[in-house]
């Protein structure tokens, strides 16, 4: 169990050794996003831009136009909100291969409170045409995601948790962009998640099993484009779905899932996530509990959709 951001920082160095196109731009958050490793090894390919996310995003576009694959390093709140127009107009519209790293995803921002909690970053990025959105679950997956998004020739928003979360993907795991991962089979209810919520969903599934309920855990690290086939299959198999996201329930994974299912397989859906509110300070455990994102909340949501399925 390694912090997701540490895995990111190391993976970036690893790929940077083989691929000279990789450059990193940092808006004075290298020690938080762990691009410090890259900066130490490749000072010529590391650009400190200061506290200026809009400019950083534009500079990344310019570097991409000259054949580079830039990673921009900042918090999710700044990548998505502060530099939104630059992301849309200088990166996404011209389809440039810039990888935007949004660190400290969701409400788990190292006790920095609402200003640093990215509760709408996925909604913003998902609504931007040409943008791919990835939200890895653990350190193992993150290492693979870095390679995969470098291979993908286009803009990517990479959501990154701050802390360590239990490893959820199997050791022989291979991440494929746009593909979901079945973490646990089950046939009564499907728990659909992204990011660190995967480990909470696995815990919820264990608790449900003790109540005699077989819960599937379907992890969707790529929120856009969503793995529609697997999602519809899971909904058909289980007949009801709980989504779990460290994000506002408007516009994020839950919305993406509901959009697909309402069209292709309308089953009862319950969205676990922030209920259209900002967060506050507190420990990770306190925040998950207060804002309704804990394993217990996922269990409760599962029981609720199961009831609705019976009607």
């Amino acid at each position: 169990m390694e912090a997701v951001r540490d895995a990111f920082g190391k993976a970036l160095v690893e790929i940077g050794r083989h691929d000279k196109r990789i450059v990193v731009l940092d808006a004075d958050l290298a020690s938080s996003t762990k691009v410090t490793y890259f900066a130490a090894e490749f000072p010529d390919r590391y650009f400190q831009v200061g506290i200026a996310e809009q400019n950083m995003t534009g500079i990344a576009a310019g570097l991409a136009l000259m054949g580079r694959i830039p990673f921009t390093s900042t918090f999710g709140v700044f990548a998505s909100r502060r530099a939104c127009d630059q992301v849309a107009m200088s990166i996404a519209h011209p389809r440039l291969p810039v990888k935007l790293v949004g660190a400290y995803s969701g409400i788990l921002s190292g006790n920095n409170g609402a200003t640093h909690q990215a509760v709408e970053d996925v909604a913003i990025m998902r609504a931007i045409p040409n943008m791919v959105v990835v939200d890895p679950a653990d350190a193992v997956e993150m290492s693979q995601v870095v390679k995969a998004i470098v291979e993908y020739d286009g803009p990517v928003y990479l959501r990154m948790s701050r802390d360590a979360w239990p490893d959820v993907v199997p050791p022989d795991y291979t991440f494929k962009l746009g593909k979901s991962v079945l973490l646990r089979p089950g046939d009564t209810v499907a728990l659909v998640c992204s990011g660190m919520m995967a480990s909470l969903c696995l815990e919820a599934a264990s608790r449900l099993e003790r109540q005699g309920i077989s819960a599937m855990v379907l992890h969707m690290p790529t929120i856009k484009p969503l793995d529609i086939d697997s999602l519809v299959e899971a909904a058909e198999q289980t007949g009801c779905v709980v989504t779990a996201e460290n994000h506002n329930v408007i516009g994020g994974l839950g919305s993406a899932v509901a959009e697909v299912l309402s069209e292709f397989c309308p089953v009862p859906v319950k969205k676990v996530g922030l209920q259209d509110t900002y967060g506050e300070c507190g420990s990770n455990e306190e925040l998950l509990e207060k804002y309704g994102l804990s394993a217990a909340h996922i269990v409760k949501a599962a029981l609720e959709v199961l009831e609705r399925k019976k009607k």
């Binding site: 650009f47 500079i59 990344a60 310019g62 830039p70 849309a88 519209h93 011209p94 389809r95």
Partner: peptide
Amino acid sequence: PDMHKVPGVEISTGALGQGLSVGVGMALAA
């Protein structure tokens, strides 16, 4: 201007204020 539609257009622009940042990135690489 849309860079993918017109030969000679280096970067799509229109939302004001963004081109100089792009130029800085180009100049660093150049």
